[in-house]
Design a protein around this nucleic acid. Structure first.
Length: 719
DNA sequence: GCGATCAGTT
DNA sequence: CACAACTGATCGC
């Protein structure tokens, strides 16, 4: 049964101070923060990530994630006042974002006016002008953005075309291709405009090591230090912002050590994160903060104040996550740099690199692309010059036909950044998608569209549900997956096989009531196992040399240093300290280098699914009719692929959710139990829709082809 | 006293 | 190193 939330939400300090940022009006030169003004040309009656100025008149609000530079005006008295008068105005966001937002007392006044929408569940919303009564229907779909917990991109479909607002995002190459709801009829949807996170849209940031590489580097550094003695501790010098959670959970998971943080009540309903955090200072990994933390550190004191354990002084190293980038041709991808006696900088990025942005945009291939951010040191015109060639107007007049890459989702063969996928993008027959009939469930005020699939189990397993299963089998990390059953919430946990669960999840009703039940988050930022094992294996184990104050990994400066690099030893850099000349990404001062080959895919974090388990709201019993689409949606919306959920005029979302691929019976079951299924967590990217496992013949063909190529490469003369 | 804005730090 | 925030000063209501 649906569970309600337990606990009240109380909490903490603030996540909330208004931060300011940009300039208003059409200013062009801005800092690295979002300069998006809140409105999109196609749908000017809604506002996203901005709640001031013109946005005060919006008919509906959307929040992509809980970072302050996207919340400007969200708690201003003017908006608060307007809410009191305009009862049909709501704020829409992901369940996780809602949870995080409401944890802060400063935003508690939104409680009755926030409607969470499940990830990947097309939902119809009625935009009503309270003065004139004029109404417009729009369908919104939340897609995981990989930026921080709860972060999403918004895909809007309505009478003025389909547009995508990315919010802030970090998606690896090829991930857009794996997002089912960006596709229709086996190809990418016809998108008019993309409002894009261009934080690193500058050739300087050509490449940024993947999450897996960064995590692995940090993991080994931390491991090498804390295994020396119970008095060796690490301070993760993180900024106050959501987004480091997957780092914490993975370190905790791998090392069996909880991370000390100042606050964790915002995660109270996200057991997969919560279990890896602690407010008990007696642990070897800290991510606590203090205004004078840097000074404390100089005095060998942690931000939480402790300097020793049982009278024995601690040996502290600090690791500061920060973005590191590399040029197009740079083979080095070092992820850890030593910056001082006991200080390290570790690569970490919340945003996609230049090449990732280009990959994403070129895949979407919209008619227009607008930058949300103008990186420091560049101009709006320059960014547009980069984006424009990737848009449709610059391409052939024919819309690009982009079949989903069937092998992308399990890409384990990774060559090198750029064109890595060539081998697979080719000519292999692409599986056709199976269309699934939908059902329109209609109850009072709520439309639920559910897709009914015929072959559920198998298919699900292959396309979507696979993560869980796979992971469990392949990884050491598997338990991560099971975390979902948190003690407290266990009551509701379901009994369904995970694969089924996941599939169901996609169908949900974003209703307010739903929110009453507090979502229980399943897995959050989980690693994708498929790749996991490899990633870790690539690291040479740290050698315990003992002696020096620095982690073993870095002790040897000559001979055979232990570098955490992987595959290409030739490129790996010896571990050395950062030169006095300062840090330079291309310098040799790098300590650890990531494996280039495996690149991003080695470890996929993200598979975290944090979807509320409990949520399900939708009574399945409603009358279901075999209807493809909700009535008045734009024709585009009606495409068979669109699975829509509607929001009632009242402002409440009617969800027409389309259950995907789930047999009705199961579906109902789920709904009542844990229907959240598979919405993906932030970082989780659904597997390629319709993708099927390659058939034996295809594999054989591929292997042969590959073998031939390899043979030729090795023996150029042989031919 | 609170909020917005700007400057400076990290 | 360019993230996302915090701190502090100023100005206005």
């Amino acid at each position: 049964m649906a569970r309600r939330c337990k606990g009240s939400r109380k909490w903490r300090s603030d996540l909330c101070q208004p931060r300011l940022s940009l300039r208003a009006r059409g200013s062009v030169l801005c800092g690295a923060m979002s300069s998006f003004e809140g409105q999109m040309a196609e749908y000017p009656t809604i506002s996203i990530d901005r709640f001031d100025r013109e946005n005060l008149k919006a008919r509906a609000y959307f929040l992509s994630h809980c970072h302050k530079d996207h919340m400007k005006g969200l708690r201003a008295p003017t908006l608060k006042r307007r809410l009191e008068c305009s009862l049909k105005v709501y704020l829409y966001c992901s369940p996780v974002t809602k949870e995080l937002l409401l944890t802060s007392p400063k935003y508690r006044f939104w409680e009755k006016r926030i409607i969470s929408i499940e990830i990947e569940t097309p939902t119809q919303i009625s935009l009503v002008d309270e003065a004139s009564g004029e109404k417009e229907e729009i369908v919104v779909t939340l897609l995981p953005a990989g930026h921080c917990p709860g972060s999403v991109m918004f895909l809007f479909q309505g009478n003025n075309g389909t547009v995508l607002y990315t919010g802030d995002f970090r998606l690896a190459k090829g991930e857009a291709a794996r997002m089912e709801l960006l596709h229709s009829g086996g190809r990418v949807k016809d998108i008019q405009s993309v409002y894009l996170d261009t934080t690193f849209c500058d050739p300087r940031f050509y490449q940024i090591p993947s999450r897996g590489e960064c995590l692995s580097g940090i993991l080994e550094l931390v491991r090498s230090w804390i295994t020396r003695s119970p008095y060796h501790v690490v301070w993760l010098n993180c900024k106050a912002a959501y987004g480091y959670e997957y780092l914490f959970t993975n370190l905790s998971e791998e090392l069996g050590v909880q991370i000390h943080v100042d606050k964790l009540d915002m995660f109270r309903n996200m057991p997969d994160i919560l279990h890896h955090l602690t407010t008990d200072r007696n642990t070897q990994i800290h991510a606590c903060r203090h205004p004078k933390a840097e000074e404390y550190f100089q005095w060998n004191k942690l931000p939480c104040g402790i300097t020793s354990k049982t009278g024995i002084p601690l040996h502290i190293v600090s690791i500061k996550p920060s973005t590191m980038w590399f040029g197009e041709r740079t083979r080095k991808t070092n992820v850890i740099v030593r910056t001082g006696e006991s200080s390290y900088r570790a690569c970490f990025s919340f945003h996609s690199s230049y090449s990732e942005i280009k990959d994403f945009l070129s895949y979407i291939c919209p008619v227009n692309a607008y930058p949300n951010v103008i990186p420091l040191g560049t101009t709006k015109d320059k960014v547009i010059e980069i984006l424009q060639p990737l848009c449709r107007s610059s391409q052939s007049t024919e819309p690009k036909y982009k079949p989903l890459g069937k092998l992308k989702r399990a890409r384990t063969i990774h060559v090198d950044s750029e064109e890595e996928d060539e081998l697979f993008d080719d000519p292999l027959p692409v599986p056709l998608r199976h269309k699934v009939p939908y059902q329109l469930i209609l109850h009072t005020g709520v439309f639920s569209m559910t897709a009914i699939s015929q072959n559920q189990p198998e298919k699900l397993r292959q396309s979507t549900g696979c993560f869980k299963t796979e992971s469990t089998q392949n990884t050491l990390l598997s338990n991560f997956i099971d975390c979902e059953e948190s003690n407290s919430e266990s009551e509701e946990e379901l009994e369904m096989p995970s694969s089924v669960q996941e599939d169901l999840g996609s169908v949900t009703l974003p209703q307010q009531k739903a929110d009453v039940d507090v979502p229980q988050w399943e897995v959050f930022f989980k690693r994708k196992d498929d790749t996991t094992d490899e990633g870790l294996e690539n690291f040479p184990s740290s050698t315990e040399t003992g002696g020096s104050q620095s982690p073993n990994l870095f002790n040897d400066s000559d001979g055979e240093s232990t570098h955490i690099s992987s595959q290409n030893s030739s490129q790996s850099t010896h571990i050395t300290e950062q030169g006095s000349q300062g840090w330079d990404s291309q310098s040799d001062t790098v300590l650890l280098s990531s494996q280039e080959k495996n690149g991003g895919d080695i470890i996929s974090l993200n598979k975290g699914v944090y979807r509320p388990k409990t949520k399900e709201n939708i009574p399945t019993s409603q009358m279901e009719q075999n209807v493809l689409c909700p009535k008045d949606t734009h024709s585009d919306l009606k495409s068979r692929d669109s699975e829509v959920t509607t929001v009632p005029n009242t402002g409440e979302p009617t969800s027409l959710s389309c259950g995907k691929h789930i047999p009705e019976k199961n579906r109902s079951l789920n709904l009542s139990t844990h229907s959240d299924s598979q919405s993906s967590s932030d970082f989780e990217i659904p597997s390629t829709p319709e993708a099927e496992l390659p058939k034996r013949e295809h594999l054989q063909y591929l292997y042969e082809k590959l073998a031939t190529v390899l043979h030729l490469l090795k023996n150029p003369d042989s031919r």
